[in-house]
Simulated assay, not measured.
Amino acid sequence: MERDQSGDVIVVGSGVIGLTTAVVLAESGRQVRVWAREAAEGTTSAVAGALWWPYRIEPATLAREWALESLTVYEELAARPAETGVRMVEGVQGETRLDEQGPWIADRLPGLRASTAEEYAGTGMWARLPLIDMPVHLRWLRERFLKAGGTIEARTVTDLAEAEAPVVVNCTGLGARELVPDPAVRPVRGQLVIVENPGIHTWITSVDPAAGATTYVFPHPDRLVLGGTADEDEWSLTPDPAVAEQIVARCAALRPEIAGARVLRHLVGLRPARHAVRLERELRPDGRILVHNYGHGGGGITVAWGCAREAAGLAYR
């Protein structure tokens, strides 16, 4: 007897957007397969910082809703940090004024306050936010998906039409540029330096508008993630030693103890930037449904759960 495939879904892409979407769909009772060119550990998501904050994501109104929905999930996951990779960590957003934050976030994060001179030399905002250890979190998402009955297949997709299922969800990130094709998707290259953690427990971000550089220090129990760069339309995945030295120097200017920290790794990731997230439903001529969920830039982790739930709603509205 032939199996009823009416509830089948193929999610293309295994980054944080793809896996989170696959989890939501599988836990709603669908038969979900993830098709991925590479394992989650090889995606851009694995290289992400990854601090929750709705930064440069459009459309802004929807992004706020997606971000707040995701925040609720991360707050719950932070109760099991070793398992989920999510911790609630305090730190300073430099060059950010508390009075410039809208009620949508100020009311949701009542602990927000202006930073003190001891915490940050310039104008800053102190916040307690989710900080995600991405390799741990991606492994946890994958295991949660598999426990929900999902399957993962290593497969390079050259045409979305290859995915023969009643519902296909396109979570291919930068790959959507060629796969859709969508020339609006372009890379924003980010370089990171991973060093031993000399005892830093709070994160910090600092913006130098004149130099166009954002510097950040994200602490994890076993390491610090130092950044960063935002090189638009740059495709190279090879770390630049000179840029790495600059990143360490900028971070050490904020936290002097970083200067002597041993370097563990150099990483590069290509953020899938777009003028706005594409989250929409497309009805194919053969009656199949294609849902696009890509173009999150560097904010994928911030909006992942909100976007996943909306994508699932679009697939089965």
Score class of each variant (00 low, 15 high):
Val157Cys: 08
Leu160Ser: 12
Pro166Arg: 14
Arg128Ala: 11
Thr156Lys: 08
Ala114Glu: 13
Asp133Arg: 15
Arg155Ser: 05
His201Arg: 15
Glu118His: 12
Pro135Trp: 03
Asp208Thr: 12
Gly173Ser: 12
Leu179Ile: 05
Gly173Ile: 13
Pro181Thr: 06
Phe145Asp: 07
Leu138Tyr: 03
Ala176Tyr: 04
Val169His: 01
Cys171Thr: 15
Thr172Phe: 02
Thr158Tyr: 03
Pro198Lys: 07
Thr172Asn: 10
Gly173Tyr: 11
Arg177Trp: 03
Leu146Asp: 04
Val136Met: 06
Thr156Ala: 11
Arg128Glu: 13
Arg128Ser: 11
Ala114Gly: 10
Ile200Val: 14
Val167Gly: 01
Glu118Ile: 07
Val169Asp: 00
Pro130Phe: 00
Tyr120Pro: 04
Pro209Lys: 14
Thr158Phe: 03
Ala165Asp: 03
Leu138Trp: 02
Ala154Asp: 05
Glu119Asn: 11
Lys147Asn: 13
Ala210Phe: 05
Gln191Phe: 00
Glu178Phe: 08
Val193Tyr: 02
Arg113Asn: 15
Glu118Val: 10
Ala210His: 09
Thr123His: 07
Lys147Thr: 14
Trp203Phe: 11
Gly199Trp: 06
Val195Asp: 00
Trp203Cys: 07
Ala163Ser: 10
Leu112Tyr: 12
Leu179Arg: 10
Ile204Lys: 05
Glu118Ala: 14
Leu146Met: 04
Leu138Met: 06
Arg142Ala: 12
Gly199Asp: 05
Arg155Glu: 06
Cys171Pro: 08
Glu196Met: 09
Ala165Ser: 12
Phe145Ala: 09
Pro209Ile: 13
Pro187Met: 06
Leu146Pro: 02
Glu196Ala: 13
Arg139His: 05
Val188Tyr: 02
Cys171Leu: 09
Arg189Thr: 05
Pro166Thr: 12
Leu141Cys: 10
Pro183His: 12
Ala165Phe: 03
Phe145Thr: 11
Glu196Asn: 12
Leu179Ser: 05
Thr202Met: 00
Pro135Asn: 10
Ala127Pro: 01
Pro198Leu: 06
Ile200Phe: 00
Glu178Asp: 13
Gly149Asn: 13
Gly122Thr: 09
Gly175Arg: 05
Gly149Pro: 07
Glu162Met: 12
Leu131Arg: 14
Thr205Val: 03
Thr202Tyr: 00
Met134Gly: 09
Arg155Lys: 14
